[in-house]
Every structure is written in C-alpha cells, then in structure tokens.
Design a protein around this nucleic acid. Structure first.
Length: 869
RNA sequence: GCCCCAGUGGCGGAAUUGGUAGACGCGGCAGACUCAAAAUCUGUUGCCCGCAAGGGCGUGCUGGUUCGAGUCCGGCCUGGGGCACCA
C-alpha cells in the first residue's frame, strides 16, 4: 500500500464544515432525550488562545461528544469573559479603545477555537461586554438591591498617591504602583458589596452535597468560609479611655487560654485605635506606618510583627485585680471577628512572636501530654495542641474542650455594663463581596448619588446605563469619572442635579451568572425560567484550579441570590466540577538575563543556544506558561503544522488531566505519529476486513477471538475512563487496541479468513469510535474509510459484548510472607481451598517456605495468595 | 505567614482504591527494510548480583498499623496553586 499520509489540515476543514452544515451541536429545549450541560470556564479575550484553553476545551469537548453519543441532549456553549483590567491597561499603554481590542480579540480567538473542531453551540455565544448582557446584569443588581442583598461598606484599597488612583493587587509590584513607582498606601473608601456572608452557613453546609466536586476544592472553600465557634469576650477598659470605648470586645476561639493572656491587640483600623490617634500623634504615626503597604493578605502577614503600646489597660475578666496592656498591632485585621484579640503567647505562634518582641510574659496554661508541669516551658514554638489546663484556677485539670465550655459558662453569666462578659458566637472568615471597581471597562453600577435624596437606583425604564464610547485614557484614574458629561444626570426622584455612580462591577459578577444566561441567551429578561429549569444545573464544569475559591464561591452565592429574586429555581449551579492542571514549559534566559521564547532557542550538542546568535542560553525551571516569562507556545503553530487532532491528542495523552502537563515538541510529534499510524491501520483493516454489511460468523478462531476480546475490553475501559474524566488512561487503552489491531492484521496475512475479516473490521470500527470524542476529525475520516455513509458524530456510543470481557482463567500472585514468589493461573471461579492447595504445591513456594511451619494462608480469590510461615 | 495539593524507572505516567509496582507512551539499545536517509516494522529496556535458574533492592525522607502499604496513620523534605481589585 502506498505510504499515503493523512492530510489533517484539509480533512479537518472538511469535517468541520460538514458538522456545521448539519447543525449537529445545537442544544434544544424541545428534546425528549435527557439533558446534559457541559461547560468549560469561558475565556478572557486576551488576544489569542493559549495552551491552557486548548487543554480545557479539549477536555470539555470529549465529555460533550461522549454524552452526545450516549444519547443526551447536550448543551455545550461558549462565550467571552470580556470586561477586565488588561484591556484597560492596554488602553492606557497603547491608546487602543478597550471595546475595539476586545472585539478584535474575540474575532481572532473564535476562529482559533473553531479550528479546534469543538462541538460547541455557537448560536448561544455572547460576550459579557455586550450591551445586552450587562443591561441584564444591571437589572439583576437592582433586584438584588431590592432583596436586601446589596450594601454599602467602607473597604480598604491600594492607593497610588502619585497617580491618584486605586490599584489592583496585580498593579502593586514590590509595594509600589506599577506605573508611577510610588509607594502604595492603604486607603478606605465606600464601596458596593454583595452580602455573601448572609449565605455563609448555607454555602458551607451545601458543600457536603457536592459529591462530584474534588474534595480539595470543597475543603478550600470550607476553609475560606472559615466557620469557627468561639466566645466574644468583653473587657472593661481601665482609666480614661476615649469616649464610647470603655468596653473592648474580643472574639476568641481559645477562651480556655484566658489565664495565659498577656496582652490585647487591636487592628490599626479599629475605632479605638482611630480614637486614640486623634489625641496621640505617636499612635497616629504608627497607624500611618501600618498603612504604608498594599492590602493583600500575603503582604500583611509576612511583615515583621510590630505593635504600639496605647498605655491603656483592660481588666482581666477572671483574675481579680489583674490588668492587661492594649496594643495596636500590624498583624490584626479589622475584617475578621471584632478586629481585636487577646494574646496568649504560649499557645499561639503569632502572639508568641509579638510577646517576644515586646517583652511580654509567656505563661503556659495547656500542658502537652507527657510533660512535667513544673518543668514545661515555651521556647520558640507555641503549643497549640490539646492537653490539660494548668496555671488556670478553676480550669486546672480540664482538657481544652472542657475548659472552653467552663470559661464560656462562667463568662456568659457575668455582667459588664448590662451585657454578659462572654457571648458564645459563631464567626466566619468570609467577608462580604466588594464589587466596586474604579474602572471604565466593566458593567456600570446603576445607581445615582443625589445631594438631597441620597443614593437612588436608576429606574428600570432608564436602563441600560450604557458605557460612553468617547472616553480618553490620557491620564490615570477612572475614565468614567473624568468624562465631561456622562456622570452628570438629574435625580430620578427629585429631578435635581445628581451624579451617576462611576464605579463599575467586579468582573467576577459577570462570570457569576453567564452559565445561566447560556440557557436563553437572547431572552429579554435576564433569564428564561423554563429554559433554566431545563438545563441547569451545569452537569460538568471544567476549569483551572486557580478558580477553586473565588469564582466558584461567588457563582454559588450569586445563584442563590438569583433564586431568591426569582431568576432561577435552584441553588447549586455546578453539579460536577473538574479542575484541570496547567500547561507548563521550560523557561529560557539569554546571556543578558532576558527571557526568551521557546522558538528562539535551539539545541546544539545537547546544549541550549540562542537560535540566531548561537550564544548560550540558561535553561530555567519548568513553569506554567506565561507571557511574562515568555515560555509560551502558540497553539496556532501546532494546529497549522499538525492539525487540531494532534493538539487535542497531545493534551489528553500521558498526563492525568488534573495535573500540570509539560508541553514538549517531542510529545506533539509522538501524538502526530500515533494518528498517522491509526490512519494506516484502519485503512489496511478496511481493505482486508469484511464489508460493513457483512454477517457475523458463527465461530471465531483463536486469533480472531483474541482480537475481539481486546477490542471489547478497550471499549469497556475507554468508556469507564471517559466517565471518570481519566483521559490519559483512555488514550493508553486506545493505544492497546491499535497494537492489537496491528498484530491482528499481521497474523491474518494478505487474505484473512471470514472470521478474521470480521474481527479486523470490528476492531478498526471500535478503534475509530472510541477515539472519536478525542480526535473527532480523524475518527470521522476512518469511519468513512470503513465504508460508512453516516456521520460518526451522529452514531450512538457502542456497548461491549459482555461475554468477551470475562476471561475463564485468572493469574494470581502467590506470596510467602508478603514477598511474591510465584504466580498461579487458575479457573476464575476456583474455590478458595483449591487455590490454596495449588499455591502450596508450587515449587518456588515450597522452596521459599523452606520446611517451616505454615501458620496461615490468606487467599483472596482472583487476587492473591499469601502464605505466612 | 495562612489554606490546599503533588512527589512512582532516564522522562510523562499506570496500578479495579489495602492485594503481581512500572500498563501505555516518550527516550535508549539491537535488528529488519533501504544505495542511503526519512518513514515504518520487530525485539529489548527499573537498579544490583548471577552464564542461568534464581536472589537482593526499589514508589521523596522517616517511623508506625497490617498476613500484605505506592495506597492508611504520625513526623519531616521538596515543588506547585490560592490568599478577597488578575481572570
């Protein structure tokens, strides 16, 4: 046979056109088949698709095509997470209007995605920056407002004092503004928030029911919500505290350690700290110092612990006459609990470090098991485990749990200024979701500030609040705020002069309901309830693990909020979640320390050199592909060199989908080689095999039988692997079937007998069918080559012949004292006694036992025998 | 700093979830075909000892549970993700 090669590029275009023409992938609400909603996280239109997209959308496409073949009415849509900071940054840097760059990018990326051959219902496509989408989102905002789920709160932001603008954490580099280079400061400002904390308990509890979510994501969300039970303790402030601050409230999860307390600490933003600063310049300076860095948690918590002694003291609630100093401390945040803590250095690492720095006492009150109470002391590490209480009056001898109860019991009964000293409380780490952004490229918040009526919503009839197109990016800050006319409006209530809200919404709002909009993307309402009832929840959601907390938690909250406001009829948006790994690549630096693209590097005698200059290149760590480190490979170059199926096959092969995959040229070539091999095998089988209409022979010889068994085993294994999203093992199984077909073709010779001819074509057909979700173009080509007039994309998923899956004999290992000494091939259903008898007769076993007395024989049928001697 | 995850041959990884560690692929080695190369095909390939039969070691390190541990438990080490205004 001529060594004709499969022309992937030409044939892929052909099959894409055929599928498209038939409208195969449109999801319909009028369909009796069971629905299946597959969704991959929609892309930000950054310019071109990257390898992460290829991986993500290939996985989703396998699921979509597989469920389609399994007889489901599949919804598999695509859209664009189109608002966001990068387009706005580009506008500032290069003067391109965000709308233009965004829609241009979408056009490019849509074409790229289409060339991947994804089974997407493109009729439902939209971008979040489409006026229609953000119009509906403004209506949702107003509904949430009416439902009491929107609030206005003061929050801290990164402030660039030179550019006079708010910075995203991303724009703060080493504590400085990315453009001005100025040291960033914290600043408080009023913002719109969604009251996600109202759902904290429900969001936490419902995690238990998300059975098809990875445990690690559920755990991360649970930790993020951070429910903790504890005690609110009210301390009486001694002397003459600022007005209204004679009681200081502290939340603690460790009331048992109260006898070991040596100080109180309050956040720099605590009202008491602010009040003190009004009369105490030193305190004010300290607070300013605390504000002289960004707002990110990592930044705050890795600082050196610093405190300012306010001079105030509070009375210890359980020790008569004892008092504790009150500090302002840089590691206490106002956002959690009451913004104040009592410090027990012996049993909390942060408190210990602070106490050492400030020279405060460290008194152990919990004794680790096995320690001597007289000699036990804390050195460099706080003890946070369980034990019995010491040095603690009436708590002595109790364990931690009992001591917590005893303290709570005592303090809830005590009174301070008419309130109990202690209140049992549940606190959450979760904070309300601040959605205000001082940016242009986002959904305008439909509110108006009126000097006489206050803040009033834009009436529904005045919606949408449209982004003005004539904005300039010639100076830092929010272009909406700088716009000469846009924000000046009349108050919808009194008609007087008023100002529009110039903040836009966090883009996480956009991505919190796009999956709902896909159910009825053209509806004149935000949602079509019937359509949402039909499609939701999303059956399988696939995306990067980097979204495990924020996006997924916000979407879960927003779905609840939409339920409350009558836009959907359910609470949990994603029944199944899969978090894929990233795509990584080696990094390269030239002699000047500048990052190099992989295509700028070549190999010479095993050493990496610059492709043009020949200068040596330093090969760095394997990291996730990122523009900043230039370790990116454009999927387009792979698709145009090898075709989409090769890119898809590479992405699914070898590496488990949840793990990071390393991109390599060799891997791509290997993937391409297999596709060519599969093509050759199927063509040969088509030439030698029985025709599609051929009858099934009554009997099969051993060779044909073996091939049939291999084919059906692979079918069963691939089916199971796809169901569990274990694409790498599915690929391995497909390799095995290709190997079996290859040896079948060889042993059958040039003129196969009828039973062989039948088995060959059956194996080739099954090969094409089980590979079709992953490499749909080649599979379609193979299907046609095998003489079929139908489209493989419209064929149902085959079922294996059960009789071919069961072997009559099994080979089991025989161990002596846990070490494998021999193996035993025996009837599958052999009795335990027979297995044991056969095992003990084995020469190797007899030798290993060496005449010792046999104490016990463990027999696990179909698995193992272990002789204990 | 806090939370989460991962670690198995030269490499990516498999292992019916406590039961033959290394399926499948990449790479290597040997061979076939070829004037030659590419492509393709066949065999082989964890490490050590041994002609072989066979034996020893082996799933990041370390201790434990068990007839039996890559898998479960304790303590470490290394790498990665998230940390609320990147998406």
């Amino acid at each position: 046979m001529a060594a004709e090669r499969y022309d992937a590029l030409r044939r892929e275009r052909h099959w894409q056109a055929v599928w498209d023409e038939r409208g195969l992938f449109r999801g319909s609400e009028d369909d009796r088949r069971p629905k299946y909603y597959v969704l991959e996280m929609f892309p930000y239109p950054s310019g071109r698709i990257h390898m992460g997209h290829v991986r993500n959308y290939t996985m989703g496409d396998v699921v979509a095509r597989y469920m389609h073949a399994k007889g489901h009415n599949v919804l598999h849509p695509m859209g664009w997470d189109a608002f966001g900071l990068p387009a706005e940054n580009a506008a500032f840097e290069r003067g391109i209007h965000p709308a233009k760059s965004t829609y241009d990018n979408i056009a490019v990326m849509r074409g790229q995605l289409k060339r991947l051959g994804l089974s997407i219902d493109w009729t439902r496509e939209f971008a979040t920056c489409d006026l229609d989408y953000y119009h509906q989102q403004q209506r949702l905002f107003l509904d949430l407002l009416k439902a009491g789920l929107v609030d206005r709160k003061t929050r801290k932001v990164n402030w660039d004092p030179i550019d006079q603008t708010v910075l995203a954490n991303e724009q703060v580099i080493d504590g400085r503004g990315w453009r001005s280079g100025a040291l960033v400061e914290q600043r408080e400002q009023p913002e719109w928030v969604f009251k996600i904390t109202r759902y904290a308990e429900d969001l936490l509890r419902a995690l238990d029911r998300l059975e098809r979510w990875p445990d690690k994501v559920r755990l991360m969300q649970a930790n993020w919500i951070g429910r903790s039970e504890g005690l609110l303790v009210r301390f009486a402030v001694e002397g003459a505290p600022p007005e209204g601050h004679d009681v200081l409230e502290v939340f603690t999860t460790r009331p048992d350690t109260l006898f070991g307390a040596s100080f109180l600490a309050i956040a720099p933003d605590h009202p008491l700290a602010k009040a003190i600063a009004e009369t105490n310049a030193e305190a004010g300076a300290f607070i300013d110092e605390c504000h002289r860095h960004g707002t990110s948690a990592a930044e705050i918590e890795t600082q050196e612990k610093k405190g300012f002694d306010t001079g105030l003291r509070v009375r210890h609630p359980l020790i008569e006459g004892a008092t504790l100093p009150v500090f302002i401390a840089n590691f206490i945040v106002m956002e959690y609990g009451t913004g104040a803590i009592f410090g027990c250095p012996a049993h909390d690492q942060r408190d210990l470090e602070f106490a050492r720095a400030e020279g405060l006492p460290v008194l152990p009150v919990v004794l680790p098991p096995g320690e001597n109470p007289k000699r036990f002391a804390i050195c460099e590490e706080a003890y946070t485990g369980d034990g019995l209480l010491i040095n603690s009056s009436f708590l002595d001898g109790l364990d931690v749990a009992a001591a917590k109860d005893a303290v709570a019991e005592r303090l809830t009964k005590k009174k301070l200024k008419g309130k109990p000293v202690g209140d049992r409380q549940v606190q959450y780490r979760l904070r309300d979701w601040g959605i205000s952004r001082q940016r242009y490229w986002g959904c305008p918040i439909p509110m108006i500030h009126c000097p006489s009526c206050g803040i009033v919503p834009v009436p529904e009839s005045d919606l949408p609040v449209k982004l003005p197109e004539d904005v300039s990016f010639d100076r830092p800050g929010n272009p909406l705020d700088h716009h000469p006319k846009w924000k000046h409006v009349s108050c919808p209530q009194c008609g007087g002069k008023a100002m529009r809200e110039t903040d836009t919404m966090d883009t996480f709002v956009d991505s919190s309901w796009y999956f709902v909009r896909f159910c009825a993307p053209k509806s004149h309402e935000p949602t079509d309830l019937a359509a949402t009832r039909h499609w939701l929840p999303v059956d399988q959601y696939i995306g990067g693990v980097e979204h495990a907390i924020l996006h997924l938690l916000y979407a879960r909250f927003f779905t609840r909020a939409m339920h409350k406001t009558g836009h959907v009829a359910m609470d949990e948006p994603f029944r199944g979640l899969f978090t894929q790994g990233m795509v990584t690549h080696e990094t390269y630096k030239d002699v000047h320390g500048k990052w190099l693209l992989p295509e700028e590097v070549s190999r010479k005698d095993g050493e990496a050199v610059h492709a043009k200059t020949g200068e040596p290149v330093t090969v760095g760590a394997i990291e996730s592909m990122s523009k900043s480190k230039k370790n990116v490979v454009d999927p387009e170059t792979i698709i145009s060199a090898y075709g989409a199926d090769t890119a898809r096959w590479f992405m699914l092969s070898d590496t488990p989908p949840e793990r990071d995959i390393e991109w390599s040229e060799a891997g791509v070539e290997g993937a391409h080689r297999f596709l060519q091999r599969m093509w050759r095998l199927v063509r040969e089988a088509a030439a030698k095999g029985a025709p599609p209409s051929g009858a099934k022979p009554a009997k099969f010889g051993p060779g044909a039988e073996a091939l049939r068994r291999a084919a059906h085993r692979s079918l069963a294994a691939v089916t199971a692997a796809i169901e569990k999203l274990r694409f790498n093992t599915a690929v391995a199984q497909i390799h095995e079937l290709a190997n079996a077909l290859s040896s079948g073709l060889q042993s059958a010779g040039p003129h196969p007998a009828p039973d062989q001819a039948y088995a060959l074509r059956e194996a080739a057909e099954l090969l094409a069918r089980i590979a079709s979700p992953m490499i749909p173009h080649l599979a379609e080509e193979c299907w046609a080559e095998l003489g079929h007039e139908t489209l493989l994309a419209e064929e149902p998923w085959p079922a294996p012949e059960k009789a071919l899956l069961l072997e009559e004999t099994v080979t089991i290992a025989v161990q002596v004292n846990g070490k494998r000494r021999d193996e035993l091939t025996i009837a599958r259903d052999a009795a335990k006694e027979d297995i044991e008898a056969a095992a003990l007769k084995l020469e190797n076993v007899v030798r290993a036992v060496g005449g010792r007395k046999i104490k016990k024989v463990v027999v696990v049928p179909q698995r193992i025998v272990n002789v204990v001697a």
